[in-house]
């Protein structure tokens, strides 16, 4: 494990938190101002009555928007742009959606079990038209359990960076380099958790989240393949090119 001074850790925390805040899509102040308005029943029904392919396309667009912010986040993480291009792509292909799921807890309301989507707060029933009820309910459960950890923005930023810099992704060319970055990020996360006087259990709870994220993402890939098998042309012509690059 690398030797890192406390000053270096503090610096890393600062850089990663700043990167997170600059690229988090919605600022805290914006989130507070956002009316916590849930979709009305008629609005929910109008989402539910959309054709399956239209709902998939809408969600692909929203996911892609969120992912573009994650790419910007990655670029600002110390050391990420020093990795070879192959590894930058590998890490983003595997980790960008995971970070979107992590960030989802910022726009999730546990009390009403709803997430900010398309202008208002949406419960799982809004996504019924996708035909992936089990995946949607797992995503909501994940967001709820992330929320229950009450992470600060600093902690969330470092955990997102830790997820993105996973050194065990397949096809990495300079695995050791990524490993070093991830270890440093983990030390910075531990440092912040300690400084914030969080209980010891938080880190192990976050480790469990890593495997939950992998499962969510592989299930997303499975659902996309099933959808593509039925609607190949819709994916080909109507889905955002970046989404196709990442998940195609």
């Amino acid at each position: 494990s690398p030797t890192v001074s406390l000053a270096e850790l503090d610096h890393l925390v600062q850089i990663i938190s700043k990167s997170h805040l600059e690229t988090c899509q919605y600022l805290r102040e914006e989130l507070q101002q956002m009316s916590r308005q849930n979709f009305q029943q008629d609005e929910v029904e109008s989402y539910q009555s959309k054709p399956r392919e239209a709902m998939w396309q809408l969600c692909a667009v929203k996911i892609t928007e969120a992912i573009q912010y994650v790419v910007e986040f990655a670029k600002r993480i110390d050391g990420f742009m020093d990795l070879c291009q192959n590894d930058q792509i590998v890490l983003l292909k595997a980790g960008s959606l995971e970070v979107v799921f992590v960030r989802m807890c910022r726009v999730f309301d546990s009390q009403s079990n709803s997430v900010y989507f398309d202008g208002k707060f949406a419960g799982p029933d809004v996504f019924k038209g996708l035909g992936c009820d089990d995946l949607i309910s797992s995503v909501f459960d994940f967001a709820k359990s992330m929320c229950s950890l009450h992470l600060t923005e600093d902690e969330l930023a470092l955990f997102s960076a830790f997820v993105l810099l996973s050194a065990d992704r397949s096809w990495l060319q300079e695995k050791l380099q990524v490993e070093k970055l991830q270890q440093k990020t983990q030390l910075a996360l531990q440092h912040v958790l300690q400084k914030n006087q969080r209980e010891h259990g938080v880190l192990s709870k976050l480790r469990c989240k890593v495997s939950a994220l992998r499962s969510l993402c592989s299930r997303h890939t499975e659902k996309l393949s099933a959808f593509r098998a039925v609607y190949p042309d819709i994916v080909q012509t109507h889905f955002p090119p970046l989404y196709k690059e990442l998940f195609g």
Binding site: E72, K75, Q85, Q88, I89, L92, K93, E245, L246
Partner: peptide, 16 residues
Amino acid sequence: KEKHKILHQLLQNSTS
């Protein structure tokens, strides 16, 4: 590279 054209582009755009 062709396969990840947009990702490459996004990575190369300046972060300013």
